[in-house]
Amino acid sequence: MQVLLLASSFALAGYAGVRLLSGDWLGVTLWFVGAAVLHDLVFLPLYATVDRAVTGVLGAVGRRERTLYVRVPAALSGLLLLVWFPLISGRVADSYESATGRSADGFLARWLLITAVLFGGSAVLSVLRLRRETKQRPPADH
């Protein structure tokens, strides 16, 4: 069963690749290679450095286990930025409005609001966890 599922997945990916490359195969290939190089040479070192800095700061204050409360909202916000970058940056053709019937305005404000909610919710969860941990600790004897 797994072999059949794997073969079906490869067949579907192959079909999608053939359809994708049927129009402008050189442009698509250049974009794909460029995106891979940009990710590996620019973005990966950038977010690895930021992650090390956050982990270092939280480790210095004795809260290294809280790193996920920064990583998760940052990753989700970054993913939203990546997917909606043309609309967030305002670099979208007039064809967007004619194709969807919606204005391309307001995406930056919505993305910032979603990012603030993600980090705010993460901060609330972190505070709740900290409160629960302090309540469960036995009092120190003096």
Rank of each mutant, 00 (worst) to 15 (best):
V33Q: 01
V33W: 01
A36K: 04
A36T: 11
V37D: 03
V37N: 01
V37F: 08
L38D: 12
H39P: 00
H39S: 08
D40N: 11
D40E: 09
D40H: 11
L41R: 13
L41D: 00
V42K: 04
V42A: 12
V42L: 14
F43V: 11
L44A: 07
L46I: 13
L46W: 15
Y47A: 00
Y47E: 04
Y47K: 06
A48W: 12
A48K: 14
V50M: 13
V50W: 10
D51V: 14
R52L: 13
R52A: 12
A53V: 12
V54K: 02
V54H: 02
V54S: 02
V54E: 04
V54T: 04
T55K: 11
G56D: 03
V57I: 15
L58E: 06
G59K: 01
G59H: 06
A60E: 11
A60D: 12
V61Y: 10
V61H: 01
R63V: 10
R64F: 00
R64K: 15
R64Y: 00
E65W: 14
R66E: 14
R66S: 15
R66C: 09
T67S: 15
T67G: 05
T67K: 14
L68T: 09
Y69P: 00
Y69F: 15
V70F: 15
V70R: 05
R71Y: 14
R71N: 10
V72R: 07
V72E: 01
V72Y: 10
V72T: 12
P73M: 11
P73E: 08
A75R: 13
A75K: 13
L76N: 05
G78T: 08
G78H: 11
L79Q: 00
L80A: 10
L81G: 07
L82S: 14
L82G: 15
V83E: 12
V83D: 09
V83R: 09
F85V: 02
F85C: 03
P86S: 09
I88R: 02
S89F: 07
G90M: 07
G90T: 06
G90A: 06
R91D: 10
A93F: 06
A93H: 13
D94L: 07
S95N: 03
S95W: 09
E97N: 11
E97I: 08
S98K: 11
A99D: 14
A99Y: 06
A99P: 00
R102D: 04
S103E: 01
A104Y: 01
A104T: 02
A104Q: 02
A104H: 03
D105G: 10
D105Q: 15
D105V: 10
G106P: 04
G106L: 07
G106K: 03
G106Y: 03
W111V: 07
L112H: 05
